[in-house]
Amino acid sequence: MRPEHETIEELLAARALGGLETDEERELDRLLAEHGDCEACRRLAREAAETAAALALTLEPVAPPAGIIERILAAEPPTTAAEPADELTRRRAARSAQPPRRSSRPWWSVGAVAAALVALVVSLSVAMPGTQEIRSVNLAQRVVRFEGDAGVLAMAYAPGRPGAIFWGHGLPDLPAGQVLEIWMIDDDRPTSGGCAVPVDGRLALAVDASIGTTDQMAVTVEDASCPDAPTSEPVLVAPL
């Protein structure tokens, strides 16, 4: 093993236990990237994962409610959301598959708002003027309602799957040259989920970004360039 493998082993061990801070995660990622196709690194990662998982085996197993397996199997297979109109979406976010990382200094305070996270038990049918029909939301999907004073906005998504659908009403009429931009905040890092212009205060938007590890969602008013980073405070937020 190369000398730095001890450092990698140390960081991999801590990561497998969930004990790294964000900067240490980045350092480990950097070291692994430097090593490239490194069999020793893969072996160390496997060993750390297996050893950490063994800790879970010390617990007495507790069978989950029987309904869980049925809900999973009853979940609809992935559906292909209709492509949003070009003028509605400027960017798609490519989400990382990295494990969730802790947030130490949020872009803005999560605690300032409350979100209603509701697991749907019934199907919804929503149709928005000027957009495609959103046919249904199944049992495995969740609906999050944004909080704020800029109208009503909700998002439906299926945890662990790419894609999310937004719909809203009572949204602000924006001056020419301005758009609403949707942000996914992960580990304090906002990533654009797309830009849209409400029509008569209404909005329907499908994006193919994954919400899987996102800490919270937010909406800001931005100029029509749909910037890569927010330039204003959010008008709507939704902690996940």
Binding site: R42, R46, A53, L73, G160
Partner: peptide, 21 residues
């Protein structure tokens, strides 16, 4: 638990046997 196993059911290809059990 549901989210974890739902992810497995929907994306079993995400599991990479080279990375462990």
């Amino acid at each position: 638990v549901q989210e974890t196993f739902l992810a497995l059911w929907r994306s079993p290809e995400a599991y990479d046997e080279r990375r462990g059990s």
